[in-house]
Amino acid sequence: MVIETVHLGKRYGNLQALADLNLSIEPGKVFGFIGPNGAGKSTTMLILSTLLEQSEGEAFVCGYNVRKDPASVRQSVGYMPDFFGVYDNLTAVEYLEFYAGAYKIPASKRRALVGDLLELVNLSHKADAFVDSLSRGMQQRLGLARCLVHDPAVLILDEPASGLDPRARIELREIMKQLREMGKTIIISSHVLPELAELCDDIGVIEKGRLIAYGSVHEVSNRDTGQSRMQLRALRNLDKAGLLLASSPYVHQLTEYMGGYRFYFQGTEQQKAELLQELLDEQVAVVYYGDSKKDLEDVFLAITEGVGME
């Protein structure tokens, strides 16, 4: 396991910010942390980044204990906080070179490394621009490049998309997909839940300091209700599709949605495939048949319903 927490907890006076957190994240996986503000996501990330000491339990990153061997953990982790400042009198190149130096990368290798990183985050054209003159989206991308200067195995990204416009979010998401392909293990928290669904292998739902759901996106989606929200779009024979879906025993709450249908499916993956085959047999020209993009938000609301009221 690249990241492992064992009964991890954090207490601020009488407030239990995190309780009994047990996580195991395999190498190369992207893990999404979902939860409202104050749920304990940032606390967990701070502990894993060696910036906060836990009150109970243990945490390991790449096999190193975060409390006993923070220097080795720091070498293995690239951490990007939700809000971070920049030094206003440095250019993008100088900014990355500064952090490369802080990670003790030899001076002779820094210039080439910085060039590669700027290219990775599509900021080569802003190499000589002062960091504080960059847009928020560009600063986030530069922050991501900064996380990568020492080639860490793990990236801990706390709400990297917060405050970004849709274009900047898409650009950031594309970079993160590249990082996933590079084999980085990523922990990411976000309020934009559909983005996590697309990016993450596993997700964890955390509320009031406790992990209340944990597993693959599909497992968590079906965890409480045993059903997933799906969407169908078709070019022809949409009425036939409607009749077929309405008559299916697996389909509930069928509604028209964006020129197609949205419905809850209660059944196995095999039964999903069989339903698709039936639609195709009826000459329905299917262009999309899959989980609804809003699915994770619904799951989150369903799972956390009532937790905050205790």
Binding site: S49, F84, G85, V86, Y99, A102, K104
Partner: peptide
């Protein structure tokens, strides 16, 4: 206050 301290503390300095 500039929110640069946390990042600095995660380096090898």
């Amino acid at each position: 206050e500039r929110q640069t301290l946390h990042i600095l503390l995660t380096t090898q300095l």
